[in-house]
Write a protein that binds this DNA or RNA. Sequence first.
RNA 1: GCCGGCGUAGCUCAACGGAAGAGCAACUGAUUUGUAAUCAGUAGGUUGGGGGUUCGAUUCCCUUCGCCGGCUCCA
Length: 635
Amino acid sequence: MKVILPDGSELALPEGATGMTVAESIGPRLAKAALGVTINGELKDLDTPLADGDHVSVITAQSEEGLSLLRHSASHVMAEAVTRVFPDTKVAIGPSTKDGFYYDFDFPEPVSEEDLSRFQAEIEKSIKETQSFQREVVSREEALELFENEPYKLELIRDLPEGETISIYRHGNFLDLCRGPHVPDTSRIPAVKVLSIAGAYWRGDSDNRMLTRIYGTAFPSRKELEKHLESLELAKQRDHRKVGRELDLFSFHDEAPGFPFFHPKGMVVVNTLLDYWRKEHIAAGYREIKTPLILDRSLWERSGHWDNYKDNMYFTKIDNLDFAVKPMNCPGGILIYRAAQHSYREFPMRMAELGLVHRHELSGVLHGLFRVRAFTQDDAHVYCLPDQVENEVVRVIELVRRMYHTFGFDKVHMELSTRPAKSIGTAEMWERAETALASALGRLDLEYRLNPGDGAFYGPKIDFHIEDIMGRTWQCATCQLDFAMPERFELEYIGEDNQRHRPVMLHRTVLGSIERFLGIIIEHYGGAFPAWLAPVQAVAIPVADRHIEYAHSVAAELSAADLRVEVDERAESVGRKIRDNELLKVPFMLIVGDKEAAAGTVSMRARGRGDLGAMSRDAAAKMVADESRAPRVDG
RNA sequence: GCCGGCGUAGCUCAACGGAAGAGCAACUGAUUUGUAAUCAGUAGGUUGGGGGUUCGAUUCCCUUCGCCGGCUCCA
């Protein structure tokens, strides 16, 4: 028989050949690296018999699917190891994830981090033993019997649709309900590492029992595993909570859990960020507003927040009346719209607000600046005519992409979410709105993912996800149409026909939360902000005390050019001052001693680039100024 | 909110029923320094808060607050 390889060539094989036969006939290295096989596009075990004419591709850990196959198998190996250590453990599920795998267990007794090394040791044993994975197809009855002591498996089996093939995989003494496929044997997963332990609800539902989830990762080689563990360590070094403390940017205190305190240097970064934000928004035709933090109950009843968002809101009483601290900016912004009568001639009307919102988040979800209870949304609402929507959305997308580019976030992926089952508004309204969003994306020739039914109940939306330097993704910007608010607040404008009409309301953010965005860029840059954002852009370092005066005169010149500059007057060695400022990620150091003072020069050192040599004071000021220039904003 | 872990000096961590320690930072003094740590000294803690067990608690138990890792939720 013959099979067809990925390059289109044909390969003659004996009857009964498997994926392994294919790998072996291509080469011994491939045979060794082979983990699975795709047959006519379907991922299968390597020992699956092939049929004449099959399109066959051997899968190794080089591919995304090969790596996740390997990790999925590793999760089985871990489950086996864990049940060997704690025999009465009930097993739940164990899939692969983006960076590794996990397996959920129901332990007879609490298990702690200290047990992880025991699991690790057992895993190593299994790998050494080269246990093979064997697939078996069983009937529903057989399956129910095989897993009679595994309540979670039983639940899964019972939920399998009628007629579904039920397969099980065995390796060593372990048996698992699993669709597969798996690697041929445990020797193919030589580098497994048990990483951490955490709680997780059965089937992700908080009404269910809490299981113990054990995370791990696996790679095709030790070397790759080591590399991954190193990058985890690196990410830990970049943790914005650590960097924020080291660079004296912000802090958190028990007296206000979830509410960040910004220090002077942190405020420089925030304000510089906001200066840039304002320039972009003015250029994009927005006008800025500001609305109160605390507003009367009636407003929140009208907006629907009182009924739908109460659990996340903070309340207060003033003169015996109920007030709420705003969790969103729109209702307040709408009052500004309603403060005057509007004409279609004013549209599109773009109102931006850097609004501080408070949301009572569950204590367990707080996480540095990434998840806080008070944050500044870079919000804006655009009021426009229905046929202006598409154009406005295009403008929002362009603004988002331009601003992200400034921070090097060029990998942006977009998701369009459409009408959910429970929603308000007419079918025609939704149709029109979804088309407008889709054609805006189409006009810019952008790829996006469609999330049918994932929109808000009040309108469809586009979400933007950025990818940081460590490959993690973040949803920051959002652009959503809102049919609810204009109705609830009876917003109106006078049209060309001199009649009252309801405007379309567009709700959008670019950075999302200023606090979280700061956290993201701290980690993205590892604290080494580009000079325009750096809290201190240059430090003048006098070699000895007698150079302090000269250092100040140099600093004064930079200061006069609106640069943020300090003089390190400490009675420390030059080496020490350089080290400390290097650790503080100061972009430029201007070292001045006898030579410089006599010649009227400075010795320039740039962060991470080392000594750049002597230059005139003018040249130095120009260099720092040039590299510290805020990003250009052209309308 | 839930599960697990952790709260010791400003930071990073020791001590784990029997006089609370180190390094860095801070302060004082000396040093006046040439591209990633000068030296010496001083001070700093009701061991997160409250309660209990004990002759004795940082250590064991309960409780509360906070933090960390996840889950759920979300910007």
